[in-house]
Amino acid sequence: MAKRIIPCLDVKDGRTVKGVNFVDLRDAGDPVELAWQYSQQGADELVFLDITATHERRKTMVELVKAVARQINIPFTIGGGINEISDADILLNAGADKISINSAAVRNPDFIDELAAAFGKQFVVVAVDTKLVEGTNLVHLNGGRIATEFETEKWIKEAEERGAGEILLTSMDHDGTKAGFDNSLLKKINDTISIPLIASGGAGNVQHFIDVFEKTNVDAALAASVFHYGEILIPSLKEELRKHNIEVRL
């Protein structure tokens, strides 16, 4: 199996939030054009995180998903504010391959079971933000601002048992540091589950991707800013991974 490289795009009101450093980009705020650039560069998959807060949210999400599905030939996940089966249903029919749920799953764990029963577990990504608090990894909400009482490892096992098809694990201790992925935690979690694990948080350079794949057996690595600002280019990243005998799709 090839290890997957996944750029994550933050979207608000149908526009990408973070700046992008591609040449020949007509509109850096257009998520579809950005997505297309990434797919051309060799991204294996895309994640769109919709942070729209208005009541128009659902409409803009559906429009985005349809536009991406029309034009992009690789799989993609959409996350952000999916709270009901009907939200998921409408996104599936608009062409999303997977949805990602985070706080909705923590607040109502049965939601994972319901989604898996309705659409199959392959459609359900459970995103987990984790932070070390006094020696214990705890699940956090709202991008790490709100601590829960859920222990990360236990919660991920529960999510798997309930029907998650994949886990997207973001270490809030590493996120934004550009000091590398949280390899010890990722390895520990990966060894306890039998569904794919996506590593997130801390990517700063090519070596960090080599490390995460060599030191843990995660299936995929996700990053945002290093790709958006052109600090890491996917073709050269994949070339380096290949040189280290890590299987990638070229």
Partner: peptide, 28 residues
């Protein structure tokens, strides 16, 4: 193994055929 089998895997087309025409013998 992790199930579902999710992601890009290498496919080897065994014989010349119309469906895989023009593709490398090993493609993800």
């Amino acid at each position: 193994l992790k199930v579902p089998h999710t992601g890009w895997n290498k496919v080897s087309s065994t014989i010349d055929n119309e469906l895989f025409k023009g593709l490398d013998q090993e493609t993800h």
